[in-house]
Design a protein around this nucleic acid. Sequence first.
RNA 1: GCGGGGGUGGCGGAAUGGCAGACGCGCACGUCUCAGAAGCGUGUGGGGUAACCCUUGAGGGUUCAACUCCCUCCUCCCGCACCA
Length: 800
Amino acid sequence: MHYNFKKIEEKWQKIWQKSQAFRAQADPKRKKYYLLEMFPYPSGKIHMGHVRNYTIGDVASRFKTLQGYNVMHPMGFDAFGQPAENAAIKNKTKPAEWTRRCIQEMETELKKMGFSYDWEREVSTCQADYYKWNQWIFLKMLERGLAYKKASGVNWCPSCQTTLANEEVVDCGCWRCHTKVEQKDLDQWYLKITGYKERLLEDLGQLKNWPQRVLAMQNNWIGKSSGVDIYFHLENSDKLISVFTTRVDTIFGATYIVLAPEHPLVKDLIVGKPQEKEALEFIKKVASESKVVRAASDVKKEGVFTGSFAVNPVNNEKVPIWIADYVLMEYGTGAIMAVPMHDQRDFLFAKEHKLPLRIVIEPAANPRTREPRELTEAYEGDGQQINSGEFNGLDNQEAKTKIAQWMEAKGIGKVQTHWRLRDWLISRQRYWGTPIPIIYCSKCGVVPVPYKDLPVELPPDVPFTGEGGSPLGKVKKFVEVSCPKCAGRARRETDTMTTFFDSSWYFLRFCSPKFNAAPFNLQEAKYWMVVDQYIGGIEHAILHLLYSRFFTKFFQDLKMVDFNEPFEKLLTQGMVLKDGEVMSKSRGNIVNPDSMIKDYGADALRLFILFAAPPETELEWNERGLEGAFKFLNRVWRIQDNLVDNPDQEILKSLHKTIKKVSTDFSEFKFNTAIASLMELTNAIYQLGADKEVFLNLVIMLSPIVPHFAEELWQILGNKESIFKGAWPQYDPKLLVEENVELVIQINGKLRSKIEVARDISEDKLKSLVLGDQKVISWLEGRPPKKFIVVPQKLVNIVL
RNA sequence: GCGGGGGUGGCGGAAUGGCAGACGCGCACGUCUCAGAAGCGUGUGGGGUAACCCUUGAGGGUUCAACUCCCUCCUCCCGCACCA
């Protein structure tokens, strides 16, 4: 017979709900702990990824509660987004209605897992009392010049009929539907995240408790690159072409320059030249390709000669100007100096188009041929300057600095930093998102909606056809407004914000979810922030986390918060796999958490998912393992019938060893090894029997992992209050000290024997004991030991 | 190409300079049972009758001692990428 998990889990879920067991209240006298898991998109059903993410968080939350912290553990829903709209088109439901049902269903499932959320703090981003503050934040950014409108080429998904941020383009396709992304010119709203690039980069150094991987990805994404802008003037003209390079040491090897096809000077350069027609055709061809497609298109470097020349300012050499698709207008200055002998891309291009070559860096160790034609690839490493005028003979790293200084002095170059990070496109031509609070007036231009008129609410009745852009554009009542400035006829912005805007500050809203005077109550935020532990998927390593950091710094500038980073510690949990593959609908390898709860209970599911792998690594689903977790719980359950009166001294020692191990393991999120040692303790007392005190301690240590199970046993054993009102056990260091220790005897580093000795035995005594050991005697064969190494309380190594 | 992280039994994994394989899954045998399931017990890296030998992706090095540190290489996963 197994324990009645169904009855027990329902019982405790009801009790927790009724008693508001996880209600968090600010209390300046108590040390707070803010634990947050990334809130879900409400798709209806929870999946194993949710189960894993939220179980990890729940254990940490309950553990911290037992340790006496004032824990806030909130939950909400990232409720705007396209699936609701797709459902509306398909099923003739309203997005709000569809979303509400999904949230309800999801809430029920989360409650069935027994998670310790403070449901009083629940927020849904699709509610007007939330997105009102999105609009408020947007207007504040507008006031500070951090929100602006720009007509530009944007990534356009023809299937979703919307623009996409660079971040939302994956492998040339839409991140959502994988349709090939096109290029389109549109008037769009941007947030000036680039205004924060230095701080976003620099403060990464502050995030000591973030995974290296995430820091590396953000660092890479911000993409700071230091070098020199060099000014080439055109032949027979004063006009300058500025090129950016990180390898100014190779400037004497620059034998031509290349512009991006969109470069503003290109038209002047080709006009009237014999190459004009060919060049124009090339530019047209490149323009028709999407940015992303162009970047991904393979290694062949296409380009044409403009017919014009420029002058290399360091040696007054005449160099041809080319156009090529491998130079991007978005990066650097949109123009490069080409150094074929020291850059592989330039090398390939120069070979293809028979452009001149010159070696200017020679490897110090093994000088190669100085005849460029004999070389089959560019040399990109370090070495000594040659063919570089007065800089010959210098080490190239040294030359980098010297040449840059020399160029700045002569006014032909400037030390410069370029960044990869672009401003953030937030406009979406969609209905189910936060309306951008802007009105266009033919007289007054772009007019922000006054704060007192917020929120700009989404009209509930909207025709969904799935065609012809945003449905909001078809709602006259919404679009046709009077101008807040001149009261004349005006038109409302019909684009909505990307949902990443919503999730960039929800962690602050949780501090005071019902506050109606500002996005959050400064006092509450002062107490609860920062988030002590944030937990979520690696897929948010760049976008969500970068945007949240950006918003936090913005609030800091508004003096609304007094910290510059929102998340103290970050844990990115691994994915749940089945048969080596990610669980997904399309693969058809989904395991439904609900049916696992039905068969084994939420506690067993929680236990298995924590035991099967460390939180950061991938987890291979194994139902046999879940069965094993369930078997273990039943084993613990049966101990209650086998309690003895006198505690065995050895068992007591094991208990305190376990308390020590589990305490550190829980703090470090090593749940798998914590569970292993709890299993060891269980095995020990299962056979020998245990007294009630030992058993109660075991139950407390299990409680963060299997809370319903533990509450029930706790109650059966005579406790009236919830186990989570109690305290985490302390270990007694005195009990950890053994009088006798088992010592390993190695001979030449190999295990040969073991011996039990007093803990504080003298080295001499130990030596004679070891040398008297039968096995040792037979291994020594009368030879004297060369060395006798003693590691106290651990081992002895005899070297022959 | 650049950056990050891996590679340990049949499987998930443990050990971060000191007994490799904790804990669990699986498997085998035993026990209980009319029988099965559950439970309980024992064993379980490979080779060898045994003493012993071999074994943490490969090779080298440091050390009394290496899964752990250093060097060379192979390989897998993830992220970024005509980034000048």
